[in-house]
Amino acid sequence: MIRWDKRIKLLFLLPAVIWVLALTIAPLFFSLYLSFTDVKREVVITGVEEIPILDKDGNPKTRSDGSIRTKKVKQKELQIKYDWVGFKKYKRVVNDQEYQDAAKFTFIYVIISVFVEIVLGLFLAFLFNRRIYGRGFMRSLMILPIFATPFAIGFMFFTILFEVSGPLAWMGIPFLSNHNWAPFSVMLVDIWQWTPFCFLVFLAALQGIPDDLIEAATLDTKSAYKIWTSVILPLLQPIIVLVILLRVAESAKLYDYIASLTKGGPGTATQSVSFLVFNKAFKMNDFGYASAGSFLMLIVVMIFVMLFFTRLRKTYE
């Protein structure tokens, strides 16, 4: 390593660090503060200035009764009051049946969809790692879902899961109208979009395994199953863990799909924490509830990330 002077290295690093600090940590603290307060916002009009409206020649425009038309510019003041209320909001959130249901749904959603994505992704990677025709082309088609706009995907699936005459209607499953099935429909969307991602990563990892390692193992046993469990999976393990971490963190944010697919319904069967919090904040103007609700969620996600912390540190050694 070159011996660089200290100021230079800080000059390189600090802008990004300050940027991110200022725009994530600071708002988070503010959010924390909000979750302990009641916010009252009120606009007070302090004065009205009437400016005559002029036409092209500079003469004031008039109404039919001869009075002059004016533009009313209002001076106003936004008064925001913060009242400290302690843990009241948290108590309300924790005891709220809707929040509990949303947390439960989000949890189950994350577990099942990530699990399916990993398994399916592994299977596909295995398949594509074989000698097959047109691999490049199919691979290209496979990965298209990853970058599609999630919010639009919700609508896309609405037409696909349409129960009366949609393309999957022959299955006779009440995809969106039954509170037991609807959660799976949302998971299906997640699985559709993100299995390709898992597949792609695992495929890259599989292709990175040196052939002689596999050949050596083939000498020992002819069982493909054995080779997978004793050689390939252990080698893939760090990558699988990383993918789990990324997927869990991403899918816990669930908002876009249900905003366009189910609206959290039927009833509250597919209401995620993000969706509930968003509605409380921006439909009901209940920012305190929203902050408290999202903080609880943040804490849970953070605990989860911490569990993976040592593994992550190794990855970025």
């Binding site: 690093l13 708002p27 988070l28 503010f30 959010s31 999202s294 943040l298 992550l312 540190r313």
Partner: peptide, 25 residues
């Protein structure tokens, strides 16, 4: 490596937690 991980952790942050303060600020 901890700085790197800290950068990554921004991706983990639930937007719902950040959006309210952004809105107010």
């Amino acid at each position: 490596k901890d700085i790197t991980i800290w950068f990554i952790s921004q991706r983990v942050l639930p937007p719902a937690a950040a959006v309210v303060p952004f809105f107010v600020l």
